[in-house]
Write a protein that binds this DNA or RNA. Structure first.
Length: 487
RNA sequence: GCAUCGGUGCCCGAGCGGACGAAGGGAGCGGCCUGCAAAGCCGUCUAUCGCGGGUUCGAAUCCCGCCCGAUGCUCCA
């Protein structure tokens, strides 16, 4: 039974599916007016891991994640850059998608753009107007009438009067609104702003209606799970919920929110001067290191990211890869499909993940199995080691961690038996092989081996040092020397 | 101010009434293995679980108070 924390009920509840075996998920994507930062990475990674795990559990997952490409920030950005809103949105959408791909975040099944759903939004606003839960203010926009939705405030767990007290505290309230809490479904366009025709006035959609139209439009009423960053709980998600339900639609079955990333003890934000772009991190680190670092914290706890955290995770990735190399170096062996250790690991892994996506525990399980695999290898129990590697790869894969991304070169594996043997590592695991450019290196490795055999360690060490200068690292194993590029 | 979440070893970070004699990762140190490295293994630093009360046969886990921090109430992932 898969259980997740539901923001609405504030409880860890069973994930109930609208259709058995199929999970429908909507994740709020970015507003594309700037480059992605670590917070976007954490949110994307959280739901990427959720989907991968659900698929590993045998469920069919359909995930929709939008791109908000009409918004005040985009308009402001276009104005200051002297370009159009379309250009700004297109540029940052491309960057976002590229960086998510680099991060290893799987493409959602659908990535709708808000601008592609304007007519659906207009219909939806009309539906709300027809039901009398929205009203038009001439020249300003169409507003949702919060008083007509008695459940308002349940998601953020605030009573409307509490919310009302702070509404307008920092934002000027249009006094023509019936209630300060009322929010825009449709905004009248100011001169020069992008706009669409509507039955009320030319303008553009409000933020919340965009997600309602896209989620309900693509996934249908009562889809299973709605996710996003915790900073979206209010007002965005609450307003989405109000709009959808007030229009008579059953909305999300479960609300999931991932926590924020802090830098230097504070929420990362441009205004705090601690803004870290994803590109900055990706330029310095293996994307898997960022993923591991985030996996090692629970998705609901605020986490701190700094160089030491990243470096620590990088070392962990190094161990994972080293294990794959060691096992790879022994070549093909008869590996049992399962052992006591792999069965136990699978069980513990699922147990951790089923319990509100306990990735830190799940990662712990993977590392424990890795250690057992290494012990088996040290003992010469190659079958058990290979079985452990298979499972480490499989479980790592369910978390989006691929092993052995760096090329590994080993004579032993070059001579290994044909593909398809039982011990052959599954797809995400390392494959080896030497390209033409590597022949020179292999030759030097062979020369060093010859020197070692002749006990001419001075020569052997000189060759090794030379290779190190060229960015090639060696590891002597019982089955031969393996080498890899470290830069 | 109101609300929510959190304070666990040198660092990150799980656990959330009994299997905790507190996972896992990282850093340091010692040992084993290795011609030497690398990789690996073992050990260690390494835990009065923010402070003070209480409930309980039993509390890191529940309750009360206090201190500290972050977040939300505002565009925000």
């Amino acid at each position: 039974m898969i259980r997740l924390y539901d923001t609405l009920s504030r409880k860890v509840v069973e994930l109930r599916l609208r259709t058995p075996g199929e999970v429908s998920i909507y994740v709020c994507g970015p507003t594309v007016y700037d480059v992605p930062h670590l917070g976007h990475a954490r949110t994307a990674l959280t739901y990427d891991v959720l989907c991968r795990y659900l698929r590993w559990r045998g469920l069919a997952v359909r995930v929709v994640s939008n791109i908000t490409d009409v918004d005040d920030n985009i308009i402001a950005r276009a104005a200051e850059a002297g370009s159009t809103e379309e250009q700004v949105a297109a540029r940052f959408t491309e960057i976002y998608v590229n960086e998510m791909t680099a991060l290893g975040v799987a493409e959602p099944d659908e990535r709708p753009h808000a601008t592609g759903y304007i007519s659906e939004m207009i219909e939806f606003v009309q539906e709300l107007l027809d039901r009398g839960v929205a009203y038009v203010i001439d020249g300003a926009g169409v507003y949702f009438d919060v008083d007509r939705y008695p459940d308002y405030g349940r998601l953020p767990h605030r009573r409307p009067d509490e919310l009302r007290d702070s509404a307008g505290a920092r934002v000027a309230v249009d006094e023509r609104k019936r209630d300060p809490l009322d929010f825009a479904l449709w905004k009248a366009a100011k001169p020069g702003e992008p706009d669409w025709e509507s039955p009320w006035m030319s303008g553009r959609p409000g933020w919340h209606i965009e997600c309602v139209a896209m989620s309900l439009g693509l996934l249908g009423d009562g889809f299973d799970l709605h996710g996003g960053g915790s900073d979206l709980i209010f007002p965005h998600h609450e307003n989405e919920r109000a709009e959808a339900e007030a229009a008579g639609h059953r909305f999300a079955g479960l609300w999931m929110h991932s926590a924020m990333v802090n830098v230097g003890g504070e929420k990362m934000a441009k205004s705090a001067g601690n803004f870290r772009t994803l590109a900055d991190v990706l330029a310095l680190h293996d994307p898997r290191s960022l993923r591991l670092a985030m996996l090692q914290a629970h998705y609901r706890s605020t986490m701190e990211i700094d160089e030491s955290v990243l470096a620590g995770a990088a070392a962990g990735i190094g161990r994972l890869d080293a294990f794959a190399r060691r096992v790879g170096a022994i070549g093909a062996v008869d590996a049992p499909a399962r052992t006591e250790d792999t069965d136990a690991a699978r069980g513990a892994f699922a147990e951790a993940m089923d319990n509100d996506m306990g990735t830190p525990g799940a990662v712990g399980v993977v590392f424990e199995l890795l250690r057992k695999g290494n012990v088996a290898l040290d003992r010469g129990e190659t079958g058990a080691a290979a079985a452990a590697l298979d499972t480490v790869c499989e479980l790592g894969g369910a978390l989006g961690l691929r092993l052995g991304a760096a090329a590994v070169h080993a004579e032993a594996t070059l001579e290994a038996s044909p593909a398809g043997t039982p011990s052959e590592a599954p797809a995400p695991c390392p494959s080896s092989g030497a390209g033409a450019a590597d022949e020179g290196i292999q030759q030097r490795v062979d020369e060093r081996q010859a020197a070692r055999s002749a006990r001419d360690y001075a020569t052997a060490d000189r060759i090794r040092a030379g290779l190190a200068d060229d960015g090639v690292e060696l590891e002597d194993t019982p089955t031969g020397t393996i080498w890899r590029r470290v830069r």
